[in-house]
Design a protein around this nucleic acid. Structure first.
Lengths: 332, 332
DNA sequence: GAAAATCCGGAACACGTTTTCCTGGACGAA
DNA sequence: TTCGTCCAGGAAAACGTGTTCCGGATTTTC
């Protein structure tokens, strides 16, 4: 009875079983065209009986779209790319789109290779993301592109980025609202854009309450611990420390505890990133700024879908952060 | 001169420019068939001039393959899935395959949805991975499948897993070789397969040197800290602690330091996972077991490629771990 | 110089679907 | 009865590539 071997059934098999033509079967299954309800139902039953699944390669060819988008990340082992990726994947799968993953490992050659591959697959769009907030060179492809987290250097490109300034400012305002009057800032390398922006935002929001200069170092717990020593020597009366990352903040908390300073009663501490393994494991748990990267990924994907659908939205979309308050800044 | 608008050029455009037929152009570009070298070169130049990129949808349709594999993960935010994913992507991209990402978020409904989508895309194969080492129900698709990290409950399926027993044993043997004579074990929930296996392996390798019973708790720094108190009360002369995870080990180290016990001189400590943010940030840095998950991802992908190519390799492939020695077990 | 072998390239088809166009029939209205 | 309208469904083209087959052209061989 099996026509050939047990090949996966095509629409023609369904059509044959239902006693109609392939085109009629297509219309029946896609709820298009003019068909009798009875015919539609018959085709539908035939499809179910055969376990028919439409071959999207054929569909892609016919529709001119591939229902696939590519995600190019320079470094997906980084903890920023991953939530973005997941958010994008979530939003895309809701729209029946698939996401193909391309990790360039920061290698321009690999990036070229992936771009060719994506163009060759006639991907409907591309999301480009990076591990730093610095703007990056745009990619050159005849396909809609949206940049996430790292914007394109071309302001006419579509980019979705985090409001780093607002995030840092919100942490500082939170400390001010708790009555803190001497706020210091410990962060990563001065050469990193995000470190500079967060430092500037902190100083801007703290105004007279800011003490000393931002302490630039590296994104590590060790630097956080060391910075405490430096800071207390210069500013012994400091009552709050905002940090450029949760790692630094955790180091700061550890060192303060070792020195017998109570967090938050003597000194309040804030982090940045809401990286749960740091923010929650810290003693005490950290008040921190969540960049809502998964939401950023979702928004990026939806923006890309809009562009694909024909309504391009140029320029930078700046998404707000969210302040998560925990014990490291409890009110006194 | 442009035939229509600035459409992306097809092979027919290349053929027209080179003054040959489409089929000849195909042969020229794929180094197949019988063509004069001069013709080949002419076509090649035409392709380059037009910036021609073959449409892989057409190729997929014609070849019956999609050059795509799906990766189903129950939870890609987990830190185990990510390196596996990256390794797989790396191995696949070398073989001109693309990886489409499906994060089920542990929702059976989403899993079904993704499976349908992958089947519909006529994916060449599927990699299934999970965040626990427990075996999982196999998926039912007419497509080659390889399971990574979480094997299939069907022993005839192809699975690639970590040698958890060997990993834990290697850490213990390492401690024995350093002359440690009273080894304890602190790990996660007893209900977790990996916790049980690692505990059994530790006891088996330590033999008489094992003291007390494995301490089961949770995979957290807090439990590690607490376990130290429990352990020192019962076994005050313990000189080595193997932990079921780096998080636990970090907590253990922290608490020991607070109690004035030196790691490694008084008590040596080992972790598990080589999760850099824990293992390197710990004081002191942790000797730990690296499951080499990226390599596991690569092996999985290559195995899948083999299956796709027609040489199925059934059963479980158990990959070795690697012991990374750091200061937490320095020789005395 | 003719037959055979070799080389080159084109035409046609296959892949699976969607879509456009078209036909045959049913039905209603004049 | 006849014409027009509408509906259900079929035939064919289109998407872009790879592959198979075949004929014409060129070279080789006797």
């Amino acid at each position: 009875m099996a026509s050939r071997s047990t090949r996966t059934p095509g629409i023609k098999d369904v059509a044959a079983l239902a006693g109609v033509s392939a085109s009629t079967a297509s219309k029946a299954l896609n709820d298009t065209g003019q068909l009798r309800a009875e015919t539609r139902e018959r085709v539908r039953r035939a499809a179910e009986q055969l376990g028919f699944t439409p071959d999207s390669r054929g569909r892609a060819l016919a529709s001119g779209r591939s229902f696939t988008v590519g995600l190019i990340t320079t470094d997906s082992s980084g903890r920023f790319s991953i939530p973005i990726m997941l958010g994008a994947e979530d939003a895309l799968s809701a729209g029946k789109m698939a996401l193909v993953l391309c990790d360039t490992r920061d290698d321009p050659l690999r990036e070229q290779h992936y771009l060719k591959s994506l163009v060759s697959r006639r991907v409907d769009g591309i999301i480009v993301t990076g591990r730093r907030t610095e703007a990056r060179e745009p990619i050159d492809v005849p396909i809609p592109v949206v940049y996430a987290f790292s914007p394109s250097t071309d302001p006419d490109d579509t980019s979705v980025i985090v409001d780093d300034h607002g995030g840092a400012a919100s942490a500082t305002r939170h400390l001010l609202s708790l009555g803190r009057e001497q706020i210091a800032h410990v962060t990563g390398p001065e050469s990193h854009l995000s470190a500079g922006i967060r430092a500037a935002a902190t100083m801007g929001a703290a105004r007279d309450a800011f003490v000393g200069q931002p302490l630039y170092g590296e994104w590590s717990e060790r630097w956080g611990r060391h910075a405490v020593d430096v800071l207390l020597r210069a500013q012994p009366t400091v009552d709050a420390i905002t940090c450029g990352s949760d790692q630094i903040a955790r180091g700061v908390c550890d060192r303060l505890r070792e020195l017998g300073r109570s967090v938050p009663y003597d000194i309040a501490v804030t982090g940045y990133d809401n990286w749960s393994v740091m923010a929650l494991a810290s003693r005490p748990p950290l008040t921190t700024v969540d960049m809502e990267l998964e939401e950023l990924g979702r928004r990026t994907a939806n923006l890309l879908l809009d562009v694909i659908a024909g309504s391009p939205r140029r320029g930078q979309l700046i998404l707000p952060t969210r302040l998560i308050t925990r014990e490291s800044t409890l009110g006194t």
